[in-house]
Design a protein around this nucleic acid. Sequence first.
DNA 1: CTGAAAGCGCTAACAT
DNA 2: ATGTTAGCGCTTTCAG
Lengths: 345, 345
Amino acid sequence: MPLTPDTATPLSNEPVTLLEVARVAGVSPSTVSRILNGTAKVAPAKREAVESAIAQLKFRPNIFARSLKTGITMTVGVLTQSIESQFYSRALKGIEVGLEASGHSPIIVSGHWNAQTDVASLKLLTSRRVDGVIILTSDIADSDVLDVAKQQPVVITERDLEGPNLRSIHVDQKFGGYLATRHLLALGHTRIAHIAGVENRADAQGRYLGYLEAHTEARVEPDPRLLVRGNFTDKGGYAAAQRLMDSGVPFTAIFCANDDTALGARLALYQRGIRVPEDVSLVGFDDMPTSSFMTPPLTSVRQPVYEVGLYAARMLLDMMGYPAEAVQLPPLELMVRETTRKCQP
Amino acid sequence: MPLTPDTATPLSNEPVTLLEVARVAGVSPSTVSRILNGTAKVAPAKREAVESAIAQLKFRPNIFARSLKTGITMTVGVLTQSIESQFYSRALKGIEVGLEASGHSPIIVSGHWNAQTDVASLKLLTSRRVDGVIILTSDIADSDVLDVAKQQPVVITERDLEGPNLRSIHVDQKFGGYLATRHLLALGHTRIAHIAGVENRADAQGRYLGYLEAHTEARVEPDPRLLVRGNFTDKGGYAAAQRLMDSGVPFTAIFCANDDTALGARLALYQRGIRVPEDVSLVGFDDMPTSSFMTPPLTSVRQPVYEVGLYAARMLLDMMGYPAEAVQLPPLELMVRETTRKCQP
DNA sequence: CTGAAAGCGCTAACAT
DNA sequence: ATGTTAGCGCTTTCAG
């Protein structure tokens, strides 16, 4: 019995085209195309012939040819601020999952909290002719966003801006700040410090406003000397907490603009021998996965980052005309853990 | 004076093609193409005419048409295990930066520590006809990797596998485990527990082997009851540390398979009132950014994750025939911080 | 140095 | 239900 070469694995690397499939199956290219896309009905016999030809030749359609013809790329662009951040990568995960069903691939580019580079990154996305765009919190000007929305649908987070081709997702940061501060006030704390986020950023500002509102509601006057500037990082929180302690102004609790800040602040307190929560209560914001493993586990305002990503993806899909299951965006929620306790005077 | 409509911004959304640019500039399409790609010399006058036409029409070449013609997509596929992980997102950042110069865009897909879904993700990448592939640690079979490498160059991490179109980057995990354990032994610890990583994974195995080697070198017999299984997560580390304490077997130090594990273990110790480092020393692995903000800051083996990403990108670029600056991969390094101290008997 | 012309691989009228 | 055919927008011989 002579050995025949294994023709199942074509040795030549010449790409297989739809045309060859058609030839092998003995049908016209359009029939193959129709089967591939389910565009029209085809006789079972032909369908079978085509499918076996596809399998035999290991045919894979060239999506570039398709995109060129249809103008649809099956990609959505995502602008994020640093993939490194735990925060954004969770949102990215949500987007990825949300897009899964429709078969769209996310193309991720990262800005750097800089309006200029963000616009450049956005350009890169549109030059790839993405079918839609998701912008995860950026400082770029409204007009630029509107501009991008002229080309394809866009969803943007943390901004109040709507348009014909533009929707936004907005989490109530102020309410979160209120929740955190009210909790502290309810525990009897009246000297509550706040390590704020990056200046001029809407989310940072919102959280601070919530801090103020809770005070107003409780008829407690916040001491302005207890407001220190952080920058949303552990390093910044560390430095801010040090400044706070150096100032000598007494306080019994700190509301941090985010969990990273709280992590840094917690270390600074530790190094000065100040116990958490015995001496000082600590509240964070975001509720990152690792925060529940801080020692002690951090009380924090849970922000539904993953769900925001999911929601953004679905919303975009809807705008692009795909059937998208509606998802509910869960509200902000205070996760009370072990860094907060009653104020002992 | 009659108001003329602002023609600088074309109102119609009809896409501008290279052909129109050529018409407006009064040259042939080939000339425009040549200018776009720098393929050949063109007369300064024509170049200028074309460039102004491009600007005026806001022309952006259709990369799909180009890719269709050239077969080059200017994209590289990246297979990662969950974008959520701090670990992988740092590597992704490295890849992003490494690719920046050449103008390639990374397309990121995530596997789930599952050989099967990883292969599917890889298929998605190749169906997008990426010019190269970077695989960030996967469990897929060698044969599948080799298979992908038939289509385009691939770089893979944490695997000893080379081929005509395949290179691998390998960090010496065993050496890292050795470093960590030697440090503990040098401090006088002899009862060193190890919370291992996921079973059957090369990196977890390597770190454990290093733990063993350091013991052998120091002529200390490791107590097999001090080896407990973790899974590279904080949760797993937490549970493992609990099991360890419940077992009643005495120990004075723990070497954790990674920082997440150490974070979990640290919480478990805290909850039982066991102090770090006074009662028990703790060493992690990876040296994630937040580890230096653990309380107390974690001693850990620094793994150059970002650099691995950078290195992978450059290596791939080189394989694809682009000039790529060589980068040095820094060696593993023990970052001694505050969770380890002399064993006090 | 520049232009004409032939496709890259696929889809979508338009016929049949 | 299926085939024929004309492009999608670009690059690239091949002439001149």
